[in-house]
């Protein structure tokens, strides 16, 4: 059962690599989200191995705060790109 942690760690490495390397910003955000999902699964595995239910609160917190952070990064970066596009197209305001 605890050997399943290793593939999770490998996926985590891969997705962090995607977040660092990914050509566009959107790839990076995607990699960030995927890495946080993998981290949630690692936490779930550890909690299940130790049979401690309260550790799952941490996994839930992780999921929710990752969601809010991703939401904000997309919102502000998208606004900025949108403004650049409007300026480029000449349809500003």
């Amino acid at each position: 059962m605890q050997y399943i942690l290793w593939p999770m760690l490998a996926f985590l490495l891969l997705y962090i690599g995607m977040a660092v390397r990914g050509p566009s910003m959107w790839d990076r955000m995607l990699g960030m989200n995927l890495a946080s999902t993998k981290v949630i699964l690692i936490i779930l595995m550890v909690a299940s191995l130790q049979d401690m239910g309260f550790l799952l609160d941490y996994a839930i917190i992780y999921a929710l705060s990752g969601f809010i952070g991703t939401l904000f990064i997309t919102m502000f970066w998208g606004t900025r790109k949108r403004r650049e596009k409007e300026k480029r197209d000449g349809t500003d305001q």
Partner: peptide
């Protein structure tokens, strides 16, 4: 999250 990222990418050009 994937929906938000993709939609924002599409809307922002």
């Amino acid at each position: 999250v994937t929906h938000i990222i993709t939609r924002t990418a599409h809307v922002s050009g």
